[in-house]
Simulated assay, not measured.
Amino acid sequence: MRKLLLSTVAAGCLSASTAQAHFQMIYTPELLQERGGQLSLKMPFTHPAASGHVMTIDQPEAFYQIRKGKKTDLLDQVKATQWTSAENTGVSYQADVRLRGLGDNIFVLQSAPYLEESEDIYIQQFAKTIVNVGSLPTDWDAELNLPAEIVPLTKPYALYEGGSFTGIVKSQGKPVPFAEIEVEYINYEPDMAADKFADKANINPPADAFVTMTIKADANGTFTFALPKAGQWGFCALGVGPDTEHNGKELSQDAVIWVQAHPVMSN
Rank of each mutant, 00 (worst) to 15 (best):
residue 3 K to D: 00
residue 11 A to M: 13
residue 12 G to F: 02
residue 15 S to V: 11
residue 18 T to S: 14
residue 19 A to C: 13
residue 21 A to P: 04
residue 21 A to I: 07
residue 22 H to E: 12
residue 29 P to V: 05
residue 32 L to W: 02
residue 35 R to L: 10
residue 37 G to T: 03
residue 41 L to Q: 04
residue 44 P to I: 06
residue 46 T to G: 04
residue 47 H to T: 09
residue 47 H to I: 05
residue 50 A to D: 04
residue 51 S to C: 12
residue 58 D to R: 13
residue 59 Q to F: 15
residue 61 E to H: 06
residue 61 E to N: 14
residue 62 A to F: 08
residue 63 F to P: 15
residue 64 Y to Q: 13
residue 65 Q to H: 08
residue 66 I to Y: 08
residue 67 R to L: 05
residue 70 K to I: 10
residue 70 K to Q: 15
residue 71 K to D: 14
residue 72 T to M: 10
residue 74 L to C: 14
residue 74 L to D: 09
residue 78 V to Y: 08
residue 80 A to S: 15
residue 81 T to N: 15
residue 81 T to Q: 11
residue 82 Q to E: 15
residue 84 T to E: 09
residue 84 T to N: 14
residue 86 A to W: 13
residue 88 N to K: 11
residue 90 G to Q: 06
residue 91 V to P: 14
residue 94 Q to N: 15
residue 94 Q to P: 05
residue 95 A to E: 10
residue 100 R to H: 13
residue 100 R to F: 03
residue 102 L to H: 00
residue 103 G to Y: 01
residue 103 G to C: 03
residue 106 I to Y: 00
residue 111 S to W: 01
residue 111 S to Y: 02
residue 111 S to D: 00
residue 112 A to Y: 03
residue 114 Y to P: 10
residue 115 L to F: 06
residue 116 E to L: 13
residue 124 Q to D: 01
residue 125 Q to K: 14
residue 127 A to W: 02
residue 131 V to N: 06
residue 133 V to I: 12
residue 134 G to D: 01
residue 138 T to L: 10
residue 138 T to G: 09
residue 139 D to R: 02
residue 140 W to L: 00
residue 141 D to C: 00
residue 141 D to K: 00
residue 147 P to E: 10
residue 150 I to Q: 08
residue 150 I to K: 06
residue 151 V to I: 13
residue 152 P to Y: 10
residue 154 T to C: 05
residue 155 K to H: 11
residue 156 P to A: 07
residue 158 A to C: 08
residue 160 Y to D: 14
residue 163 G to Y: 00
residue 168 I to D: 03
residue 171 S to R: 07
residue 172 Q to F: 04
residue 173 G to N: 07
residue 180 E to D: 15
residue 180 E to L: 05
residue 184 E to I: 02
residue 185 Y to L: 08
residue 186 I to C: 05
residue 189 E to Q: 08
residue 191 D to C: 02
residue 194 A to K: 12
residue 194 A to W: 01
residue 196 K to W: 01
residue 197 F to D: 10
residue 200 K to Y: 04
residue 203 I to H: 10
residue 207 A to I: 01
residue 210 F to Y: 13
residue 211 V to P: 00
residue 212 T to N: 09
residue 215 I to E: 13
residue 215 I to H: 03
residue 216 K to G: 04
residue 217 A to V: 07
residue 218 D to C: 03
residue 219 A to R: 12
residue 219 A to T: 06
residue 219 A to W: 05
residue 229 K to F: 15
residue 230 A to K: 08
residue 233 W to F: 07
residue 237 A to F: 02
residue 237 A to P: 10
residue 248 G to A: 05
residue 257 I to C: 02
residue 258 W to F: 10
residue 258 W to N: 02
residue 258 W to R: 04
residue 259 V to T: 04
residue 259 V to N: 01
residue 261 A to T: 01
residue 264 V to L: 11
residue 265 M to C: 10
residue 267 N to P: 04
residue 267 N to S: 11
